[in-house]
């Protein structure tokens, strides 16, 4: 494997966003790119990352390899990179280590690190292509704000999408709270658009603790996409450049 990223910052942000949810994961490398799928310890949340080969320049992977990496170790090394550094990941065919090289585009500084790999026996889930009842695109910062505001009142949030809009509501010991967003197009600032595509109304309840955790990815993309259907996990998607993505799935709360 040899994969060169223009900005080390991208991988730094991805790992930073998921390291509190999952600890040890396999980075599955093949000629289409680098993928990761891992569930949290409670098995109700799942991270699915895809960094397509096109996100790297160049990208070469001659043989499928799984790089088992402890994310806290990876984060320690990524913190040694400057945000603007060029990052090259390298691994042999049957690797014991993954090699990370940081190059400054402005100076002649070159730093090199090896991280020891681990054998990780990871359960892989088959995630079906789903036609969701509701798909909501909104500013990532807005979603983060709503989750952070509501977690002050309650541990769970009801997300209800209707043709009127999308309502995030919660109730707790001190009282209730709700935020409603309607579809909204801002020609001057398209990054503020809220788009609600609905085939049928849907209402589901989720644990805010996990949603707040997912929102750590807000720095990766201006927009977040929420996809909901009755009785299936919520998909929270941050789209990256070159069709790469960081997706989170969360099982809905169920009644007594």
């Amino acid at each position: 494997l040899e994969a060169r990223l223009e900005q080390a910052n991208l991988l730094k942000k991805v790992v930073d966003a998921i390291k509190d949810l999952v600890q040890d994961c396999n980075f599955d490398c093949n000629d289409s790119g680098i993928a990761l799928q891992a569930m949290d310890n409670s098995h109700v949340a799942l991270v699915s990352m895809m960094l397509k080969a096109e996100s790297f320049s160049p990208f070469r992977c001659d043989r499928n390899i799984a790089l088992g990496i402890n994310l806290s170790s990876l984060m320690k090394v990524l913190r040694c990179a400057q945000n603007e550094d060029i990052l090259t990941l390298k691994a042999d065919d049957a690797p014991d280590v993954v090699n990370l090289v940081f190059e400054s585009s402005e100076s002649d500084r070159l730093s090199e690190y090896d991280i020891k790999l681990m054998d990780i026996d990871q359960e892989h889930l088959g995630i079906p292509e789903t036609e969701y009842s509701a798909t909501i695109s909104m500013p990532a910062a807005e979603f983060q704000r709503i989750c952070r505001d509501l977690i002050a009142l309650s541990e769970s949030v009801a997300i209800e999408a209707t043709k009127e809009g999308v309502k995030f509501s919660c109730s707790g010991d001190i009282g209730n709270g709700a935020v409603t967003l309607r579809s909204h197009t801002n020609v001057e600032k398209p990054e503020l658009n809220v788009d609600i595509a609905l085939s049928e109304p849907v209402a589901l309840t989720f644990s805010l603790k996990y949603l707040v955790n997912f929102c750590k990815a807000s720095g990766l993309s201006g927009t977040v996409k929420l996809c909901l259907s009755s009785e299936v996990p919520l998909l929270v998607e941050y789209t990256l450049a070159s069709n790469s993505y960081l997706r989170f799935y969360l099982a809905p709360k169920i009644g007594d």
């Binding site: 569930m39 409670s42 799942l46 769970s156 996990p233 799935y249 709360k253």
Partner: peptide
């Protein structure tokens, strides 16, 4: 609402 089911019950094995 109370608990959550494991994601394995929704997604199953590939």
């Amino acid at each position: 609402p109370t608990g959550q089911r494991s994601l394995a019950t929704y997604f199953g094995n590939p």
